[in-house]
Design a binder for these strands. Structure first.
Lengths: 342, 342
DNA sequence: TCATCTTGCCAAAACGGTTTTCACACCGGT
DNA sequence: ACCGGTGTGAAAACCGTTTTGGCAAGATGA
């Protein structure tokens, strides 16, 4: 059943039917009723392809997920992020398009999405420092929102981000207050912008107390359990081993815990651990009582906010760049305690 | 730059240009060259919206992810699955559309996708026993492939699945051979079809050795770390505690390990653990040496196969239903050993 | 009373491609 | 000279909407 057929059945022109259904004022209220009920009765759904062509809008937004071809690691936060944003899209009648592309094809993917008109805007995931995508997208004129920020980009752009620097600064201060002096940083890959910010927050806190960050206690890897374990093994087998760990993710934290317990030590008593908790739906940090002390910020919420921002930008392309900085909360779990006396 | 403009620039009709670019035979090879190079030079990309309308194809497939509104848990395997399928789509010029919808809206989502013509087919995720979606999709005539199977559906349909029954049967046999007699099953939610099959595999293996499955050692929950820990706590604090665990996922296995180590026991020596390993990119089971003994089957590979099957079905709608049953491999890790002597 | 607005509707033209139909030139064979 | 096939390209129809530009009838105002 298409518009023309429906119009014929009603003895009206397609124009009037279209207007009636889309709430235009120039149609008699009685007629509108008649049209709406007939549409419902015949189960009429306007063809999305035709609408898109006629209106020149894609009614869709793209999420381009870069896939590092070497590591092949999907960012595990990604599914929660789109769970948050997907809801916003469907509420607004937008489709969510996903492209998983190898790193090096990402720019051409944007160009393609733009010139073929498949999307009205995109979300940029996992920005690196000095990320070239921002420039590209600005030049293309494709509306976009970055999840995170990119240090070094001298342009202004839309973003939603967590205050990563502050979160790690606070976490470090917390450990220092507990008496820890040898704090290992188990960071994410520091090509990623968020990881750099986290390291800065950490070292800032150390400096503020007159301490020098120790390179031997810092690692920067992909945020997996195994890498967390490795980092902990390294930091714990030194002559002056770490007494506390600051981890960029729950998975790394779990790896650190494995290392601690594998040595017959007890997390929270012998060694303290703080993680950054993205509040992933399938990786909850305990239920009633948190397992890990953590700086927490929901990535699903970030997805929701980013999607809302993007839709706003699409509707108001000339509006000035928008920013949203979320603060992570510091929640107390069982994984931290006073530094053991020597 | 659109087709008409390009044609004008070349002094040709839009028809000829279209044909030249789409490889139709009735155009002079010299003309084609001229057209193709001009298209490249002017960076011409056909408008996807127009193509879709003209051809009546959506050039897109949908992945509808049901979101249980109570638990709000995203299935963690999902991101790897689409990493696999996404690659296939983009290689074939298809878009991947994601809808995250509350359980109860799922059917209407399919109806909508179909009647508005936004997709040419869909992948059905996380089938339950007797899943009503299969009937719905058959009736709608929308091509689909199920990731998994649905016991009880008397219709034939396209699916890609792992031999879950066999995997758990083999794992159980392996533990029995090691001398274990009290094996705890830490299963997924048994509304899910795959979980039922796994339980059957497990109990089949027990029966074959003349053993009765013990309900007190079986749990069926969402596959999270915390739930794994809980199940282990329960199974280990019984008067006759379990000596081995069979877990439906890596995360549950990690929870079980936490419980074991929290009791000062050692996994692999005191208590054996086997997991089902989906080979998730961000949850690798160790690197060189697997941490867990596991039945492994790559969910990313399954995504790839499902996508290929779906595209085939879309191109050949009248073909008979296709099936693909993958076998999980049993890999030996450090988490299993002979049952401790009493 | 006549010009001017509203109101409610319609026909036709977009949107940007594909596909079908048709015209024409050229060629070889009779 | 006629005919049929073939290679090449143009013109027109079509996909299913929205949008633009009328237009008749009735209401309003001077």
């Amino acid at each position: 059943m298409n518009l023309k057929e429906l119009a014929a059945k009603l003895g009206l022109s397609p124009t009037t039917v279209s207007r009636a259904l889309n709430g235009y004022p120039e149609v008699n209220e009685a007629t509108r009723e008649r049209v709406v009920s007939a549409a419902r009765r015949h189960n009429y759904r306007p063809n999305a392809r035709a609408i898109r062509l006629a209106t020149g809008r894609a009614l869709a937004v793209g999420h381009v997920i870069p896939l590092d071809t070497r590591s092949e690691i999907m960012n595990p936060i990604f599914s929660d992020f789109i769970a948050g944003s997907g809801e916003v899209y469907s509420r607004n009648g937008f489709d969510m398009l996903l492209s998983i592309v190898p790193d090096e094809l990402e720019e051409s993917t944007y160009r393609d999405l733009m010139s073929r008109g498949t999307v009205d805007g995109v979300i940029v995931h996992a920005p690196k420092t000095n990320d070239p995508r921002i420039r590209t997208l600005k030049d293309l004129g494709l509306p976009f929102v970055v999840h995170g920020r990119s240090t070094g980009a001298d342009l202004d752009y839309n973003w939603v981000d967590v205050n990563n620097r502050r979160a790690f600064q606070r976490a470090t201060e917390f450990l220092l207050d507990l008496g820890h002096r040898r704090i290992a940083l188990v960071n994410g890959l520091e090509v990623m912008d968020f990881a750099v910010r986290r390291r800065i927050g950490h070292t800032d806190a150390l400096h503020a107390r007159g301490l020098e960050p120790e390179l031997r206690l810092m690692s920067s890897t992909e945020m997996t359990e195994v890498n967390g374990w490795r980092a902990a093994e390294a930091a714990l087998s030194q002559p002056e081993p770490a007494t506390a760990f600051l981890c960029a993710s729950m998975l790394q934290g779990m790896g650190v815990r494995r290392s601690i317990e594998g040595r017959g030590l007890k997390m929270g008593r012998d060694i303290s651990v703080i993680i950054f908790d993205d509040d992933l739906s399938y990786l909850r940090n305990g239920e009633d009582v948190p397992i890990f002390t953590a700086t927490r910020s929901s990535v699903k919420e970030a997805g929701k906010l980013a999607a809302e921002m993007l839709l706003a930008v699409i509707n108001q392309p000339e509006s000035p760049p928008q920013h949203r900085l979320l603060e992570a909360e510091l929640i107390l779990g069982q994984s931290t305690g006073p530094a053991p006396a020597f």
